[in-house]
C-alpha cells in the first residue's frame, strides 16, 4: 500500500478514536440543550468525574473502606460510574438548576461553569493536577489488532464500536420512540403535557441525569486510554462546544455525526500539517457559522 494512503488511514483511525469522545460528549450536551435549553458547562467536569469514579473504584475504594482486596473492575465500572454521575447530575438539576429555569439561560450557564470549577478544584486537591494512569483495562481487550494498514490496540477498537452503538441507541430512543416524543413534547409545551398526566419536572430531571450519565460513560471509556486527570474535561470541553455549534444546537444526529467527522478531520489534518490540527475545528466553526448560522443540522429559526 502506498505509505501516504496508509498514513492517512492510520491517522484517520486515531481521529475516529478521538471523535468518539467528541460525539459522546456533544450528544449529552445536545440532549440537555434540546430538552432543557440549558447550556451545561459542567459537562467536561462530569466526564472527568466518570473517569475518576472508575479509577477510584478500581484502585482506591477498597483501601478507603478498609477492604484492601476490594476492587471494582472495568466492566462493572462501565455501568456503575455513569449511573453515579447521572445521579449527581440529577442532584444538580433538582437542587440548583431548577431554580434558574425562569431566568435568562446565562444564569444556568454560569452555575454549571461554577460546578466545573468546584469539581476540578476538589480533584486537584486530592489527586493533584498531573493525572494517574487507570490500570484496570480488562485482559480481554489488551493487545493489538492488525488492520492491514496499521496495528491498532484492541481496546481503542472496542471504544469506537461501543460508542457508535450507544450513539445510535440514544438517537433512536429520542427521535423514534414514544418516550422520546413525550420528552420532546414536554419541552415544547410543558403545560399541555402536564394535562396528559405526565410529571414534567421528573422527566426533566431524568433527562438531565441521562445526559450527564453519558458524559460519565465517556469518562470511563477514556480512562484506560488517557491518564485520569482533573483537567481532562477542561481540555476537551471547548472542542465539544465547537462540535455542538457546528452540528446545530440541540440536534442529536447533528452532534453525533459532527463529532465523528471532526475527529476524522482533525486526524487527517495531522498528516498534512500537524500544528494546524488543533485549530482546524475552530476554522470550520467560523465557516459554518458564516454560511449556516444554525449549524449543519440545526432547525431553522
Amino acid at each position: 500500500m502506498d505509505p501516504m494512503i496508509r498514513l492517512i488511514l492510520a491517522q484517520g483511525m486515531l481521529g475516529l478514536n478521538n471523535g468518539v469522545f467528541y460525539a459522546m460528549l456533544s450528544l449529552g450536551l445536545a440532549v440537555i440543550f434540546g430538552l432543557l435549553n440549558v447550556v451545561n458547562f459542567a459537562h467536561g467536569a462530569l466526564y472527568m468525574l466518570g473517569a475518576f469514579l472508575a479509577l477510584i473504584m478500581y484502585s482506591y475504594m477498597g483501601a478507603w473502606i478498609g477492604m484492601s482486596d476490594l476492587s471494582i473492575g472495568f466492566w462493572p465500572s462501565l455501568i456503575l460510574a455513569p449511573i453515579l454521575v447521572g445521579c449527581f447530575g440529577m442532584l444538580i438539576e433538582r437542587f440548583m438548576l431548577r431554580r434558574l429555569y425562569k431566568l435568562d439561560p446565562i444564569y444556568s450557564l454560569l452555575l454549571t461553569f461554577g460546578v466545573t470549577l468546584v469539581l476540578q478544584g476538589l480533584f486537584i486537591n486530592f489527586f493533584n493536577a498531573s493525572g494517574t494512569p487507570y490500570p484496570g483495562m480488562p485482559e480481554s481487550l489488551r493487545g493489538v489488532v492488525n488492520l492491514g494498514f496499521m496495528m491498532f490496540p484492541k481496546y481503542r477498537l472496542f471504544v469506537i464500536v461501543f460508542s457508535i452503538l450507544v450513539c445510535f441507541i440514544v438517537w433512536y430512543v429520542i427521535e423514534r420512540t414514544r418516550i422520546g416524543s413525550r420528552l420532546r413534547a414536554g419541552t415544547e409545551n410543558p403545560e399541555l403535557v402536564k394535562a396528559f398526566g405526565i410529571n414534567v419536572p421528573l422527566m426533566v430531571m431524568l433527562t438531565f441525569g441521562f445526559g450527564t450519565g453519558l458524559a460519565g460513560l465517556a469518562g470511563v471509556l477514556a480512562a484506560p486510554i488517557y491518564s485520569v486527570s482533573p483537567l481532562m474535561g477542561a481540555n476537551l470541553i471547548i472542542v465539544i462546544f465547537a462540535v455542538v455549534v457546528i452540528g446545530g444546537m440541540g440536534s442529536i444526529a447533528g452532534a453525533v455525526v459532527t463529532g465523528f467527522t471532526l475527529g476524522l478531520v482533525e486526524g487527517i489534518t495531522k498528516v498534512f500539517y500537524a500544528p494546524a490540527a488543533n485549530t482546524v475545528i475552530f476554522l470550520l466553526m467560523v465557516i459554518v457559522l458564516l454560511v449556516r448560522p444554525n449549524g449543519l443540522f440545526g432547525r431553522q429559526g
Binding site: R6, L7, A10, Q11, L14, S229, A277
Partner: peptide, 14 residues
Amino acid sequence: GSNDFSSYLLQAQS
C-alpha cells in the same frame, strides 16, 4: 504533558 502520543508515533513510523 500530552497523554496521547499515538498520532506523533505514527508520523515517526511512516
